[in-house]
Design a protein around this nucleic acid. Structure first.
Lengths: 333, 333
DNA sequence: ATATGAAGCGACAGATTATGTCGCTATGAA
DNA sequence: TTCATAGCGACATAATCTGTCGCTTCATAT
């Protein structure tokens, strides 16, 4: 344990990225916990010597000096990402980019940057080819993402994680002015391009609410633990508040006829493992499966337009009957 | 540069994760390139001394010994992930899990594992709370993901990245037997839960094809560069092959009336920056925007069922008219 | 069976480094 | 001014690092 290498590696792992910083004394304590009991002087010397060869920054404006990794520096990573891992990371990057709020996404960009570094090093010429040759295609329409303040986002995550009350400037839907509120964060829900804070508000201490993060203007974390209803259950909350789409936990046996080309993909990516398909003589595809009763599923069915005919359950077929009639009413002029 | 710490860190960064391995001699050469010119004996000694304190594995069955990081070991990472970064990573994890092919996803799991490690350390009690209090909700129906062989996937990525021909056992849609083919990989397209290899096949050397990865049974990478059509353009290919949904690059001015509650989210997450909304006296929401002509957009509109009435363009309104008539035909019995 | 070569390992010695200690200095707060 | 805190230079000693060399082992070629 008296190995200077290992101690220095541990120390490097303890130094945060700028703008956060740490101090010799703190490092001494942390290293001591890990079994490296050395003089503070040694740590100072280590820091200075590592600073010469790594992107470390010493903020010497105040004493004690604050040490951090340069914001853009690449740091250390071992073991090396292998090229396939790196490719997969660059894919993950493409998957996430349109989905995550950009403030969050930027925050972890450094990991994807490192993946690209790896690729660049292993085959500098191929990386451009890869970029031109890989696409993650959207499955559905992409909406504009609401703008989200980075500090606000960070504070809300932190408060939700640590279970601390916040004082926040929040603008209600439709209102142009935001007002100061005391809020007890209880959870986060990401849905499409909108993130919601699930919380209790002091003005109505019985009913949990969901507030889109982008309507927060300023957030201050208080040092008070949140008060929340006993036995609060996030899943239950999202269901009863139409954040997730389940109508009920009811299962029914679904049956429908699809246009073959429109639904051929179901053969390889079935709705679930209960699905059965059969191609009929008229070319159409008969699909049946046990499904839970969700709005989402109905929307998905409707998106097929006239390429689907629902057979069962009767209730669902009926909904489509009504739909047909209402559409005729709208368009038959 | 004669600092043993830095040399050892560099060395650790050069050691791959098991089952891949590296050798003392190779390390000597690589370190020499980086300016650390030391004897091979020194490297051997470093390896042995680091093995005692880090999850390194020495495969001593053959000589030269093969060195690697233990498959499950956590490795080194500096600078420290800050807690917010770690939270964001754990979010990214939730976003990706249902989207990525699981073979890929497992491959980069180690990064998310590390994020959890960070959280566990900073607030061991809160991590469970976080798990219970954060949800990424699906925007659309999730299908079962086709099973994908890990080695096959890895080989196809590699071949696509490096532009090498492959010999593969591929099963055509509908066929139960797979057959051996010579294939020239040109790109990858991820769409929903299916990944496609874009490639030329020797049996038809003019027309690029797209083959779902899960229909490959075995892949062998050859050491021959791919032959591909001149000026191949992936985006063009996906458009003309219905992988991406664009009908044309045509823009039109879209106008429709939405049920207010069904479409209220458009106010905060507009279709694009050209969108304008207006609430009418009857409560409905008039939405207009410049849109490109895509199947996807039409499907999205249809998924609203009778909660939308398309006004313009006339062509699109007409499509809905026809839809209404066809639905009536199907359901009016 | 023998020769050959490659790789690992122990030993050694000299050079280098690492470390704790101490005292001095600079800085800001009381 | 005094006091406390940190940083820093110096120093002596212990610990280490490193290149070298020769021995051993093992697999392969002859």
């Amino acid at each position: 344990m008296s190995n200077p290498t290992l101690r220095q590696i541990s120390m490097l792992e303890l130094i945060p990225r700028a703008p956060r910083k740490t101090y010799a004394k703190k490092l001494k304590a942390q290293l001591s916990d890990r079994g490296y009991d050395v003089d503070e002087r040694t740590i100072q010397r280590d820091l200075v010597s590592l600073e010469r060869v790594l992107p470390l920054i010493c903020d010497a404006r105040d004493k004690p000096y604050g040490w951090s990794w340069a914001e853009t520096g690449l740091g250390i990573q071992a073991p090396a990402m292998d090229p396939i891992e790196a490719l997969t990371m660059s894919l993950a990057h493409q998957y996430l980019e349109p989905l995550m709020p950009s403030a969050s996404f930027n925050r972890i960009n450094i990991f994807f940057k490192r993946a690209n570094e790896t690729l660049k090093e292993s085959s500098p010429k191929l990386i451009n080819r890869w970029r031109n040759r890989v696409r993650v295609l959207p499955e559905l329409l992409r909406f504009k993402k609401p703008k989200l303040n980075k500090d606000v986002e960070q504070a809300l995550y932190k408060a939700a994680f640590e279970g601390l009350q916040i004082k926040a400037l929040y603008r209600k839907r439709g209102e142009s002015q935001s007002s100061l509120r005391l809020i007890h964060p209880m959870g986060l829900v990401m849905k499409g391009s909108i993130n919601y804070l699930i919380c209790m508000m002091d003005e109505d201490p019985d009913q949990p609410r969901y507030l889109p993060l982008h309507r927060f203007e300023r957030v201050e974390i208080l040092d008070l633990p949140v008060h929340e209803p006993k036995n609060f259950n996030l899943d239950e909350f999202t269901h009863t508040n139409n954040l997730s789409y389940e109508y009920s936990k009811n299962l029914y046996t679904f049956k429908a006829l699809f246009d073959y080309t429109a639904a051929a993909h179901l053969i390889e990516t079935p709705l679930n493992s209960s699905q059965k398909t059969k191609r009929l003589e008229d070319g159409r595809l008969l699909v049946s499966a046990r499904m839970t009763d969700t709005l989402q599923f109905e929307q998905w069915l409707m998106s097929f337009g006239s390429d689907v005919e629902v057979l069962a359950p009767g209730k669902l077929r009926n909904k489509f009957k009504i739909l047909a009639k209402e559409l005729i009413k709208k368009y038959d002029d």
